[in-house]
């Protein structure tokens, strides 16, 4: 053995650290989204891929161009943590299947440009950036954001839904066949979708939200890998089940079966991928329960009593705003005090 002769380095303890690093966390969540993207492509054709790609391109380009950098870092250095790509993919999966690609791109720009960078980048933003992007699109292009093209099977995967290639601002005539999501049919027509279709995802809706089966599997995997704080989705979903169960017992025409509430709309997608964003959910365990429960309660209230058929996006954004307040009253009791 060659004797050691070099200089010694001096770090500070601890001299070991957990395997999970921030970029790895982001990359793993990106990978968990692959089955969701596949399900979207299965039901809505390869246009789904184009929409996700357009939103991601908008997000990544904005991050590349404008992210605050530390001294010595090159342009785009923050892309290495994988969070910019993640925001883009998440946004893309919340969009309707027929949305024009340029709108998806603009959504990606807004997600990063409004939702993340002005707050100082990763970890500084109070609102989930992907949902900021979606809220921006909802406000700017309300028609395109509520036009639902019907789902199909794998056989139609080459068919483009809607008018994805419409040029910007030149008006997108709604020439394709459109339909209504289970939640709007429930709200406005009183029809309740079959649970089996809700479960497999064979329903109209936003790209990534339709298949409960895929989302539950992804959530289970993320919980096993400890990629998120399990308290948020668990308290969120439990609150929805309890509240909607209560309303269901009171009046069946007001509220469908809790399982229908659970598997319809963006609830599962939001619970697994959006509400659990570490930066915009509480760091204090007790606060995480309150945060999740708050989202669940607001979703039920919006769906049953609000003007909109769906409320997951606004519920999460509202509770994002409440995080500092919740944390203020849930700081852990210090050991021995």
């Amino acid at each position: 053995m060659k004797p050691h002769s070099g200089e010694l380095l001096v770090h500070t303890s601890p001299f070991d650290s957990a395997r999970l690093t921030t970029p790895r966390l982001m990359i793993e969540v990106n990978l968990v989204l692959l089955p969701v993207i596949l399900a979207a492509t299965w039901y809505f054709g390869f246009g789904a891929l184009l929409i996700v790609a357009a939103a991601t391109a908008g997000a990544v380009l904005t991050e590349w161009g404008f992210a605050p950098r530390r001294a010595g870092q090159g342009r785009g250095a923050t892309l290495a943590d994988g969070s910019g790509v993640l925001t883009g993919i998440l946004l893309g999966l919340t969009l309707p299947p027929g949305v024009p690609l340029w709108m998806a791109f603009v959504g990606g720009v807004a997600a990063i440009g409004l939702g993340k960078l002005p707050w100082g980048g990763l970890g500084g933003n109070p609102f989930n950036p992907a949902l900021v992007g979606r809220a921006f699109l909802q406000a700017a292009f309300p028609v395109a954001m509520t036009t639902w093209n019907p789902q199909g099977g794998f056989a139609q995967w080459t068919e483009l839904r809607g008018t994805p290639l419409a040029p910007p601002f030149l008006g997108s005539e709604v020439d394709a066949i459109t339909t209504a999501t289970p939640l709007s049919r429930m709200k406005f027509d009183g029809d309740v979708e079959a649970l089996s279709s809700l479960f497999t995802g064979n329903i109209p809706g936003s790209l990534g939200e339709t298949s409960a089966l895929v989302l539950i599997l992804c959530g289970g995997w993320m919980a096993l890998r400890r990629l998120f704080d399990w308290r948020v989705p668990v308290s969120l979903l439990l609150t929805v089940i309890l509240l909607s169960g209560l309303f269901h017992l009171i009046d069946e025409t007001l509220c469908p079966n809790p399982l229908v509430m659970l598997t319809s709309g963006g609830l599962l997608f939001g619970a697994v991928f959006m509400a659990t964003d570490p930066a915009t959910s509480p760091a204090v365990p007790k606060a995480a329960f309150i945060f999740g429960a708050g989202i669940g309660a607001i979703v039920v209230l919006i769906r049953l009593f609000g003007g909109l058929p769906e409320g997951v996006m606004y519920a999460i954004l509202l509770m994002n705003a409440a995080v500092p307040l919740i944390e203020r009253v849930t700081q852990p009791r210090v050991f021995g005090r």
Binding site: G123, G124, A283, V284
Partner: peptide, 21 residues
């Protein structure tokens, strides 16, 4: 990297402090 506010330090701290804060 910047703090994600993921709360892993809060769940690790045996003195129940909030290291992230």
């Amino acid at each position: 990297y910047t703090c994600l506010k993921c709360g892993r330090c809060v769940e690790a701290c045996p003195a129940f402090l909030n290291p992230s804060k």
